[in-house]
């Protein structure tokens, strides 16, 4: 039987890509235990990896003295994840669309597009140092009223 009680947790981890391994396992296990679909789990895993890597690489610039805060809440209907870095922040509106023109052939710049495509709600706060993203259980991606970046 799927677990129904919400799980909520805050973790502060090092600025290195491998530091996501444990939090990622915890979040994906919580989704699995609450009956999220394999598509949901794939989507959240991808968005989490991309968001964390952005925080470590572009936010904290791999500075070992800086941390990344991961807050998550999983209930029977949705998962909400906030990733906060200690960098200078950024304006997501300035990031070029990687699907257009010559950008298609650039090796970088697809992380934010994937996050906004696979999560139903994505918001940036605290000057761009904090990304909050939500995915609803069993809801397909690409529904126009939700799959947007604010």
């Amino acid at each position: 039987m799927a677990a129904e009680s919400p799980v909520k947790c805050t973790l502060v981890v090092e600025s290195q890509p491998s530091a996501l391994n444990r939090p990622c396992r915890q979040i994906l296990s919580a989704l699995d235990a609450r009956g999220f679909t394999q598509d949901d789990i794939f989507a959240v895993h991808l968005a989490l990896e991309e968001a964390f890597l952005n925080a470590v690489k572009h936010g904290n610039k791999m500075d070992a003295s800086k941390k990344v805060r991961i807050e998550y809440c999983v209930d029977a209907e949705k998962v909400e994840i906030c990733i906060t870095d200690e960098g200078e922040g950024f304006d997501p509106g300035t990031i070029p669309d990687p699907r257009v023109g010559e950008n298609l052939y650039r090796p970088e710049g697809r992380g934010l597009l994937l996050i906004s495509s696979y999560m139903h709600d994505v918001k940036y706060t605290e000057g761009g140092t904090c990304m909050r993203m939500v995915r609803y259980k069993g809801r397909p991606i690409g529904e126009p009223d939700k799959a947007s970046v604010h």
Binding site: F42, L46, E49, E50, L53, P107, E108, R110
Partner: peptide, 13 residues
């Protein structure tokens, strides 16, 4: 079964 956007960049390269 799973890859990140960094792999897409790898394929472009």
């Amino acid at each position: 079964k799973f890859l990140s956007s960094a792999v897409l960049g790898l394929l472009i390269r």
